[in-house]
Simulated assay, not measured.
Amino acid sequence: MSDNQTKGTAKEIGGTIKEKAGKAMGDDRMETEGTGERVEGKTQKNIGKVKDAVKDQFR
Rank of each mutant, 00 (worst) to 15 (best):
T16Y: 05
D56G: 08
D27Y: 03
R59S: 14
K18W: 00
G48F: 05
G8N: 09
T43D: 13
K7Y: 13
K42M: 11
K23Y: 02
G14R: 06
R38P: 02
K11V: 11
Q57T: 11
I47Q: 06
R29I: 15
I17G: 01
A53E: 01
A53T: 01
A21C: 03
E40Y: 08
R38S: 07
G8L: 09
G14M: 08
E37Y: 10
K51P: 05
Q57L: 13
V50N: 04
G48C: 03
K45T: 08
Q57A: 12
G8D: 10
G41N: 00
G22M: 01
R59F: 12
E31V: 06
G22Y: 00
D56E: 10
T6Y: 15
D3H: 15
D56P: 05
K55M: 02
K51C: 06
T32E: 09
E31S: 06
A53V: 01
G26E: 03
M30F: 05
A10S: 15
R38F: 03
N46D: 13
G34D: 02
M1S: 12
R38V: 01
D3T: 13
K23R: 02
A10Q: 13
K55E: 07
G36E: 05
T32N: 08
G34Y: 02
E37P: 08
E12A: 12
N46G: 15
K11S: 11
D56F: 08
G26P: 01
K11W: 12
G41M: 02
D52C: 03
S2N: 14
G22R: 00
G8V: 10
E33F: 07
Q44Y: 06
G41S: 04
K55R: 03
M30N: 06
D28L: 06
Q44E: 12
V50A: 05
K11I: 13
E40M: 07
T35L: 09
Q44S: 09
E40W: 07
G8A: 10
T32K: 09
E40F: 08
K51S: 10
I13S: 12
I47Y: 05
E31A: 05
E37M: 11
Q44F: 07
G26F: 01
A21S: 04
G48V: 05
G41L: 00
R38K: 06
D27L: 05
T16L: 07
A10T: 15
D3N: 15
G15H: 00
M1Q: 14
K20C: 01
G34E: 01
Q44I: 11
I47P: 01
E31H: 04
K42N: 12
I47A: 06
F58V: 11
Q44G: 07
R59C: 10
I13N: 15
G14E: 14
